[in-house]
């Protein structure tokens, strides 16, 4: 595998590494799946098949919450290069919009749909009143970073102001479960898992095949080039926020429904996991968010077989650091070129 021989320019070395990273990307996933399979077998041998399989199912559930919540985050980070610390609070907005619409008399499924639309609208509003002006004012990274934290606080405390900070529930049945032989999976968790996986697949496909999806990827890759190709960048930015907000709303609703009990701070507690999934999966990659979420979910749940569950978050994040040492760009990440 060498660079095209006709060129002896300085770019040659660069090109070779690009080729390597392209080739490495699918094999990284393969290696990861292989490692996970080996770990599963080892755990099954040590702790028994049923407990290991149950922990695996639980890991998938936890991973799907995280993965779905992380898609919107990874899109905004990858496309707009914005570390959106307010993303967790968009999830909260989704859950509380549902409560609001249900209180206004809408049946729950309609209230949920309305809540997703409202969260998307909220995300778009934040673009119009915060991010667009900041971008035009050429705000630096630190300013954007602090604005995101501030915006998150504003959303969270607005929710607290209108809805109170007490524990809420969406009233769904959280105790029903499906028996798969000796294994158990909560009915709502199964729904959350399926909807989550479907949403991630759909977003991945849409990014790959629709016009706006390609425009988003082009924008993420090189904004100036996207512009000279005739891509309306503000439209891409707006769409990114709408999609990100819609998915944040969905993730917030699914999480709130399946976990059963929440308060306006749940977004903040989720945020770290969402960032972890984003970074581990490779920034800007919807499938990466899924895989990153699943890796974190599985490793945390598997760790409960070996250690007391109180160490679960520590184990998950230790593993995250370890994996980033080996693949700093994340599982689906691409080496950044200097172009």
């Amino acid at each position: 595998m060498s660079a095209t021989p006709t060129v002896r320019a300085s770019a040659a070395e660069d090109d070779a590494s690009a080729v390597r990273s392209r080739l490495a990307s699918p094999s990284r996933l393969t290696v990861l799946v292989a490692v996970m399979a080996v770990v599963f077998c080892l755990l099954a041998a040590l702790f028994g098949l049923v407990p290991t399989a149950q922990a695996t199912i639980n890991g998938f559930v936890a991973g799907s919450y995280t993965g779905l919540g992380a898609i919107g985050l990874t899109l905004v980070l990858g496309i707009l290069k914005l570390v959106n610390f307010a993303h967790g609070d968009l999830l909260v907005a989704g859950a509380y919009f549902t409560i609001l619409f249900a209180w206004l008399g809408l049946p729950l499924p309609l209230a949920m749909l309305g809540a997703m639309v409202a969260t998307a609208a909220l995300a778009l509003v934040t673009e119009k009143i915060v991010w667009q002006p900041l971008r035009q004012a050429k705000a630096g990274t630190l300013q954007l970073f602090l604005s995101a934290i501030g915006l998150g606080l504003v959303i969270r405390f607005s929710v607290q102001f209108f809805a109170g900070s007490q524990v809420r529930t969406l009233g769904a049945n959280v105790v029903d479960s499906i028996a798969l032989g000796p294994l158990r999976l909560g009915t709502l968790q199964a729904v959350a898992l399926l909807v989550g996986l479907a949403a991630m697949l759909l977003v991945g496909l849409a990014l790959r095949f629709t016009g706006i999806g390609k425009e988003m990827r082009a924008f993420a890759d090189n904004r100036a080039l996207a512009e000279v190709s005739g891509i309306d960048t503000q439209h891409v930015i707006n769409m990114t926020w709408i999609v990100s907000g819609f998915l944040a709303g969905l993730a917030g609703i699914l999480y709130a429904t399946a976990i059963g009990s929440f308060n306006p701070n749940f977004g903040l507690t989720l945020l770290l996991s969402l960032f972890a999934a984003t970074v581990l999966g490779g920034i800007g990659n919807a499938y990466g968010a899924l895989v990153g979420g699943l890796v974190i979910g599985l490793s945390q749940e598997w760790s409960t077989l070996m250690f007391n569950a109180r160490w679960k978050p520590a184990v998950g994040f230790a593993l995250l650091i370890l994996m980033l040492l080996f693949m700093p760009q994340g599982i689906f990440g691409r080496k950044k070129r200097g172009s």
């Binding site: 990827r217 080039l225 996207a226 190709s229 172009s339």
Partner: peptide, 24 residues
Amino acid sequence: KAPHRIARLGLVRTFQLTRVLAGM
């Protein structure tokens, strides 16, 4: 005018340092 509008009118540019969408 915005870059994408000018491009759509039929005036396009390339860059001094080559830019391609490497991930596509």
